[in-house]
């Protein structure tokens, strides 16, 4: 075995003080941050009423519920559930499409390369952000007050909350577009409208289509829950069955949702590949 020459610790320490005596702030920064994070966690657990006994009894209860869910069984309500699922898918599709149609013109106003003036762009951005800050379920409640209970309120809730998200995403896509192609149009004497129509849209539309497809999938998930507050779809059935403790029906409904989301996910991924090509999706 080879042997390294014996080091002289004193001399090394004198030569490289930085290595041996790192300032306390550098050594303690990460542990302190972690400690603070977990201290807040502990306080939160205490403040929110966590206790070991509650946790244990709750978990036991949850175990019973899980046992009672097996096997999933729709009873005699399968047709009702299927039509509710159809309603959910309809809500997702319509809501997303409506949102995309409304968001496209507004996103142009929020894009830096179309509206260079920040004074004009800023309020549009903030407006979109505040719409995004309100959860879909809250929008559903508001729309129920306006158009009454039923799936239509769900469509509008999804449309409004996605409008905020799309406005932001689309304007980012527009800002990421290749400037040179637009410049080519301008250099040939095209007007601003021409620049948008021929220079921007051909680049941006496929990206936007991909995002819309992706959102149809994620909105299927949102649409399953807006029924909980009465805005149509399968969520209404789900909340109802949980309330009356029909666990086999609950597990069947959850299974249906999982399968539906998986199918929509598969379709939308296929379509996105077809539109923008494999490379761009990743």
């Amino acid at each position: 075995m080879s042997q390294l020459p014996k080091p002289d610790p004193q001399a090394l320490r004198a030569k490289y003080p930085d290595v041996f005596e790192r300032p306390a702030s550098a050594r303690l920064a990460t542990p302190l941050m972690l400690l603070a994070a977990f201290a807040v966690l502990a306080f939160g657990l205490f403040d929110l009423g966590f206790s070991p006994s509650r946790l244990v009894s709750g978990l036991r209860e949850l175990g019973w519920i899980t046992l009672m869910m097996i096997p999933p069984d729709p009873g005699s309500s399968l047709p009702t559930y299927l039509s509710a699922l159809g309603e959910t898918l309809s809500i997702a599709l319509l809501g997303t499409t409506l949102a995309a149609c409304m968001a496209l013109p507004v996103s142009l106003l929020a894009a830096r390369n179309i509206i260079p003036s920040a004074i004009f762009r800023f309020p549009v951005r903030r407006f979109l952000d505040s719409i995004r800050g309100v959860d879909t379920l809250i929008w559903a409640l508001v729309w129920i007050n306006v158009v009454g209970l039923g799936p239509f309120a769900g469509v509008l809730a999804i449309a409004v909350s996605d409008f905020g998200a799309f406005g932001k995403l689309f304007s980012e896509a527009i800002e990421a577009a290749d400037k040179k192609q637009v410049e080519g149009i301008r250099a040939s004497g095209g007007s601003t409208l021409h620049e948008i129509r021929f220079g921007l849209l051909p680049q941006v539309l496929p990206v936007i289509a991909g995002q819309v497809l992706y959102y149809i999938e994620s909105n299927t998930r949102s649409a399953t829950i807006i029924g909980i507050v009465g805005a149509g779809g399968i969520g209404l059935q789900l909340a109802e069955q949980i309330r009356v403790l029909e666990w086999q029906k609950v597990s069947f409904l959850i299974l249906m949702i999982l399968i539906a989301v998986a199918v929509i996910d598969w379709i939308s991924t296929k379509l996105r590949f077809a539109i923008i090509g494999q490379r761009a999706v990743a």
Binding site: D178, Q181, G184, R186, S188, G189, P202
Partner: peptide
């Protein structure tokens, strides 16, 4: 201005075509 741009045609190093058209 647009008509002047049309009269003074520009050719770019990176071509500046619209790729998807």
């Amino acid at each position: 201005l647009r008509q002047w741009r049309a009269r003074s045609a520009m050719i770019f190093q990176q071509f500046n075509l619209v790729g998807r058209l």
